[in-house]
């Protein structure tokens, strides 16, 4: 278990800048999730931490020790690959034991460690099987077992759930959370799925185009997004954005310099009969999820908008409904898209 420090890390392939100066502190035992859209550089950053990519400039330190020039094998980290990268010709046991054999660990010690990991991950019945004979979830657990058995300073996960189906993904997500609670290691986890990020992370690092947009606890990011990108990326359905000064916002006092207004669908309400509405929404689509509903449409000035309603939303396509904004949950962004005030 260890802490990790990144200082001004950049990575370029020729003229293409993939990472544009990343600074990050990860505390011992922390579960940090890198999240961002495809191509934001999150996987490259993870591979740079792993030592699989050399950084163009900047420093990486583990437990205060500079490892920038060290090779992947020297850094003492373990990684779970998106593809799992199980050795297809080796049994589950040999897959898990391989790293320990490379370290020339005594045979009994290897056996004990493999069995402990297998027990923890419920892999004991499959130790003699080849990866090809396992289900997706089992392969996933072997990949984790291969990482756990090494007792690494930091676990690195590269989109480990993306090859699983939806149901298994939810189940494995919970297992991962439980695993972290049990072994308590430092974990860096890459995903493009913000639900994974919100549910698993102690802290989330939101990346876009090779830059850190915001670092913070999940609820901080949700409640106090630092900029318009984070506001839009975290939360589902996405936050509604309106131009400051547009007609539906007439009743609101915009702070000085505001250019964009944002409110999440769950922080807008349908005005009950007689209640004063901030804006009027003409409904295009209503999604009824059972416990809640979402109405999608356009406000009077044509801006697209979504609002969450209770389970009994009666509106239909073509209806016009009044919408109120929760005054405590409004977001304003300035010319530079940074959040104002707050």
């Amino acid at each position: 278990m260890a802490s990790l420090t990144l200082r001004e890390v950049t990575k370029a392939y020729g003229a293409t800048q993939i990472l544009k100066g990343i600074d990050l502190e990860v505390a011992d035992g922390e579960f940090v999730v890198f999240v961002g859209p495809s191509g934001c550089g999150k996987s490259t950053l993870l591979r740079a931490i792993a030592g699989l990519e050399r950084v163009t400039s900047g420093r990486i330190a583990i437990d205060g020790r500079d490892v920038t020039q060290e090779r992947a094998s020297e850094r003492g980290l373990a990684m779970v690959f998106q593809s799992y990268a199980l050795y297809p010709h080796m049994s589950v046991y040999r897959n898990i034991a391989f790293a320990l054999e490379n370290l020339r660990m005594p045979r009994e010690e290897i056996d004990a460690r493999v069995r402990r990991a297998a027990k923890m991950l419920r892999l004991e019945p499959y130790l003699d099987r080849k990866p090809g004979a396992l289900s997706g979830g089992q392969r996933q657990r072997v990949a984790i077992g291969r990482a756990v058995v090494r007792d690494p300073k930091i676990f690195l996960f590269d989109e480990p759930l993306s090859n699983l189906d939806a149901e298994l993904r939810v189940a494995t997500r919970k297992e991962l959370a439980a695993l972290h609670a049990e072994i308590g290691g430092t974990i860096i986890y890459v995903t493009h799925d913000q639900v994974e990020a919100m549910t698993l992370a102690d802290r989330i690092v939101v990346l876009q185009a090779g830059k850190v947009e915001q670092i913070g606890a999940p609820l901080d990011l949700y409640n106090r997004p630092a900029n318009r990108f984070v506001a839009g990326f975290i939360g589902s359905p996405k936050m509604n954005f309106l131009a400051a000064g547009s007609a539906p916002l007439a009743a609101l006092a915009a702070p000085a310099g505001a250019r964009t207004f944002g409110v999440r669908p769950e922080h807008a309400m349908i005005a009950r009969d007689g209640e004063a509405a901030d804006a009027r929404l003409s409904v295009d689509i209503v999604e009824r999820l059972g416990g809640e509903s979402y109405a999608y449409g356009a406000l009077q000035d044509g801006a697209p908008f979504c609002v969450r309603a209770g389970d009994a939303l009666a509106a239909r396509r073509g209806d016009s409904i009044g919408v109120r904004f929760d005054r405590a949950r409004l977001h304003w962004f300035g010319e530079d898209d940074l959040a104002l005030g707050a």
Binding site: G41, S43, Q82
Partner: peptide, 18 residues
């Protein structure tokens, strides 16, 4: 830079370790 790869086990045929 996220890659979308099928699980590796599909690609190479595991050889029998005879």
């Amino acid at each position: 830079m996220s890659s979308t790869q099928a699980p590796t086990q599909a690609a190479p045929k595991p050889a029998r370790e005879g």
